[in-house]
């Protein structure tokens, strides 16, 4: 078996975010997240519900980036219905981020002043509603001080400090579970929900992560090395879920 790539470590780290979710809509957005979610379902979380990327819940292990892949439809879930599912709460989304602070406040709307942005990006999209209504994780393929910043330009996804400030109305359904990057996995398992380094990917040092983060990360004695895929997981990734190796374009090395 050839050497395990960083993107494959990321896929497993993403899959681990969904461990324990049971029968829930697992809704990762992006290539590595999609492979990771599907890997979780094909291995240790068999009852997860996942979409085909459009309006269907697909029961089968669809490969990413394959046009006209077979879809075994288990339910029709057009966008209007998706918002009902979202507000109903039985969903765990994984989004991207252009900026994130130490409490998990996330921005992908724009860079600069929102009123006249230097760079218009996605807009608020679903981030405000997602973070207020159900579990959210993030995947960031380019861990750098430009992404992990002291203060984000616009808060789209709501972080722990802001949710706590508003009280129960905002915090009762709020959970930012994990942030997976090309270097490491972070969580918010600290007394005041500051971001904590949970695991570093093989070949990465703590200093690498600290240098690539624009705020102080909590590093404690629970820090681990991210686990490698099992032989069966590797087979699923390489032969079933991403046969064309699209993952390596999102995370190199």
């Amino acid at each position: 078996m050839s050497e395990i790539s960083r993107s494959e470590v990321c896929v497993v780290a993403v899959a681990e975010c969904f461990r324990g979710d049971g029968e829930r809509l697992c809704n990762p957005i992006g290539t590595v997240p999609m492979i990771g979610g599907r890997l979780a379902r094909e291995s240790f979380e068999p009852y997860l519900v996942m979409t085909d990327g459009y309006a269907m819940f697909a029961a089968n292990a669809m490969p990413v980036g394959v046009a006209d892949a077979e879809v075994v439809v288990e339910a029709w879930n057009p966008y209007a219905q998706m918002f009902s599912v979202l507000w109903n709460g039985n969903r765990h989304v994984m989004m991207g981020a252009s900026q994130m602070d130490r409490f998990g406040n996330q921005n992908f709307a724009c860079i600069g002043d929102w009123h006249k942005p230097k760079a218009q990006l996605l807009g608020f999209r679903g981030a405000p509603g997602n973070t207020m209504n159900h579990t959210t994780s993030y995947f960031i393929p380019n861990h750098s001080p430009k992404v992990f910043v002291d203060q984000v330009d616009v808060v789209c996804g709501v972080g722990y400090d802001r949710a706590a400030e508003l009280g129960l109305v905002a915090s009762r359904f709020h959970e930012i579970r994990r942030v997976v990057t090309n270097l490491a996995t972070m969580d918010f398992d600290t007394p005041d929900h500051r971001m904590r380094l949970r695991s570093i990917h093989p070949g990465v040092t703590v200093d690498d992560v600290v240098e690539a983060t624009g705020f102080e990360l909590v590093v404690d004695d629970r820090l681990e090395e991210s686990r490698l895929p099992t032989a069966e997981e590797l087979r699923l990734i390489r032969e079933v879920l991403d046969p064309n190796n699209i993952r390596s374009a999102e995370v190199r090395g």
Partner: peptide, 13 residues
Amino acid sequence: PTRAGLGSDLLRM
């Protein structure tokens, strides 16, 4: 009414 928007900068902007 909705929870969406609470805590974000959407209401500030």
